[in-house]
Design a protein around this nucleic acid. Structure first.
Ligand SMILES: [Mn+2]
Ligand SMILES: [Mn+2]
Ligand SMILES: [Zn+2]
Ligand SMILES: [Zn+2]
Lengths: 136, 136
DNA sequence: AAGTTTATGCAACTGAGTTGCAAACTAATC
DNA sequence: GATTAGTTTGCAACTCAGTTGCATAAACTT
């Protein structure tokens, strides 16, 4: 998996077997997945290793985390060049029927006029509703 | 506490001693508080009762909850007439220094153009950064 | 090869949120 | 005022996500 390795090394992450595997799984996903979801994609796996792998990936901005209020943080790949700055962030969508969490990568988070002397470092915007698949 | 009672009854919540007490504490707060925060305002209290009180308050839209990603949901009073519809919602702010969560009641959540056939029921928008008190 | 750093696996713990159940309390009916 | 029915409260116990410590294994450094 040369391609996978490159993605890891370009983010300064040492490409171990575990990490390649996790990155490949993340790449396959159409929606954001939680640590538990990830764990279940392995037959035998250690929760803590996966946990630390996700932490590393997030620190290095290979993935971003989404707190959609369901109780489990979800993760999804960042775009190649993403540095997760406030201007680069996108809206997320939680479907209340299928419980899937989508990256609305094309929808940037609108900028906000904060009160004076408040400064932004990060923004989490989660829209909840019904997705197109679940629309009756 | 006639005023407190009125607020409760107007939202169809039976005014018990516990509920009056909790509502009074919530009314005093300048920022949103968590269940644990609330618990610590009592000398002797039962976490579960407070938990259920907050749940009831939220169901009846006397308060709204804020998931600011700190691991503990915060709560704050709604405005008198609030029905917590998407158009009525406001932005929240988490200060990464003092960890306080503010209701930016004057800043409505901007409306978003969702992909076709996606519908909104609720939105959570939390801006993280440094508040005016913590600005160095 | 020996030594150093980094990653992994297992056990154990924390803390938020939640449920079940019995006792206490309230409101309604006789 | 006693009887009943419905609601609220308090306590115990549990779930589950997230986290830490530590010992082993693997990967780099000299
Ligand atoms: Mn995303
Ligand atoms: Mn608020
Ligand atoms: Zn759906
Ligand atoms: Zn602050």
């Amino acid at each position: 998996m040369k391609d996978t390795d490159d993605k890891l090394t370009s983010r300064n992450i040492k490409p171990t077997a575990m990490r390649e595997l996790v990155l490949d799984i993340l790449t396959e996903q159409k929606m954001a997945i939680s640590l538990s979801d990830l764990e279940q994609k392995f037959h035998k796996s250690d929760r803590v290793t996966l946990y630390r792998t996700l932490k590393t990936f997030e620190e290095k901005k290979l993935i971003h985390s989404i707190d959609d209020g369901t109780g489990a943080v979800k993760y999804a790949l960042c775009k190649e060049t993403c540095q997760c700055h406030p201007e680069e962030l996108h809206v997320h969508f939680l479907c209340l029927k299928c419980q899937h969490t989508f990256c609305l990568s094309d929808i940037p988070i609108p900028s906000i006029n904060l009160p004076v002397n408040f400064s932004v470092e990060n923004i989490n915007m989660v829209v909840k509703g019904v997705c197109s698949n679940c629309k009756d």
